[in-house]
């Protein structure tokens, strides 16, 4: 408790004060409830002793205390509303602070990007540069003969092979259609051929069984 680091703000203290007040009202209500209960008990006791006037007095006191109770209820409600309002205001303030921070950061980032004109200028510049590049390559390729071009491409190929390390001659992809149906047919044919080849054996075997 002694260390007063500023994690607790003035608002916190104000809220605490209000909540403490609320607690006190709570305790007050408890006390009054005990009192009213006792007054009822006293009234009952007095009636038992046939002391009507005293019983009446006790009941009057009870009535008065109950009116106090009602009043404190109202006070309690208004105190609670106020506390809630303050707490909500604190939340709102925090939200606002968050928004401020976010906006600030966003603005800074925008500033780094140099504003809309900056972005436009940059985009324009990059388009220009791209166009220029295209022009250069067109000029270069335009000036070369077909033979030169072929040589350049050959060299590129050679270089690519070198870069890829081993000189792998990849097989060409098959140019014919895959003969799936034909293989099925072939299989059938093969089977019949095999069966024909086997038949003599079976024919020889069957009679022996029969």
């Amino acid at each position: 408790m002694g260390s007063q680091n500023s994690k607790v703000s003035a608002q916190d203290k104000a809220i605490l004060d209000m909540k403490v007040q609320r607690d006190k009202l709570h305790q007050y209500q408890k006390r009054i409830k005990v009192l009213t209960d006792r007054e009822t008990e006293i009234a009952r006791e007095c009636l038992r002793r046939n002391d009507k006037s005293k019983a009446l007095l006790a009941l009057r006191r009870k009535k008065y205390q109950e009116s106090l109770l009602q009043k404190t209820d109202e006070q309690l409600a208004s105190l609670e509303i106020l506390t809630n309002d303050v707490e909500f205001a604190v939340v709102q303030r925090d939200v606002l602070y968050g928004l401020q921070q976010g906006t600030k950061v966003l603005k800074e980032i925008h500033k780094e990007m140099g504003g809309i004109e900056g972005v436009e200028r940059l985009l324009g510049e990059s388009a220009d540069a791209q166009a220029y590049q295209k022009e250069i390559s067109e000029m270069l390729s335009g000036r070369m003969t077909n033979q030169d071009e072929d040589e350049v491409e050959d060299e590129l190929e050679a270089l690519a092979k070198e870069v890829n390390g081993v000189d792998i001659e990849l097989p060409d992809a098959p140019t014919q259609d895959l003969e799936r149906k034909e293989t099925a047919k072939e299989r059938r044919e093969r089977r019949t051929r095999e069966r024909e080849a086997e038949q003599p054996h079976q024919q020889r075997a069957e009679p022996m069984l029969a």
Binding site: M1, N5, K7, D12, K13, I15, L16, V20
Partner: peptide, 22 residues
């Protein structure tokens, strides 16, 4: 919790203490 820095107790007087959790 206060020792661990998870809460702070504050307020005036024994019966008016409040606590804030972090």
């Amino acid at each position: 919790l206060v020792k661990k820095g998870r809460a702070q107790i504050f307020g005036a007087g024994e019966d008016q203490l409040g606590v804030k959790f972090f």
